[in-house]
Amino acid sequence: MASHVVAAVDEIPPGRRKLVEVAGRNIVVFNLGGDFFALNNRCPHRGGSLAHGITTALVESTVPGEYRCSRAGEMVKCPWHGWEFDIRTGKSWCDPSRLRVRQYTVTVKEGRELVEGPYKAESFPVRVENNYVVVEA
């Protein structure tokens, strides 16, 4: 396990995602209203690329005919068969206890810390005055 600097914070504005390669793994980083989440890009069903999926609301219902949306943008739908995954937990909607996408720890670090720390930022220069998204993988 190592810490990888994968993007500058302003590269992934709220509601957007970025696909990155870290230690040979494809990982997709989502920004939900300022909170970052990193999921393995590979759908646990048949391998669809989650970075290509739409993010949408959680749709629930207490009674037939009612469609209730909440948590706008916090569910990612696999671009292939449409299974929904909770970006915050990686759990699938259809079988949350058995089927989930691997999650990675993400933190936001100031450039100042990064310049000093044991961080890998292979693909771009780190500036002291910026903030960066760091994935543990």
């Binding site: 749709v59 219902s61 209730r68 449409g82 299974w83």
Partner: peptide, 15 residues
């Protein structure tokens, strides 16, 4: 199909 399109019928909330 339910796993993929269940949001069309969200009251079907289990397999």
């Amino acid at each position: 199909f339910w796993r993929g399109v269940r949001s069309e019928v969200p009251w079907v909330d289990r397999p």
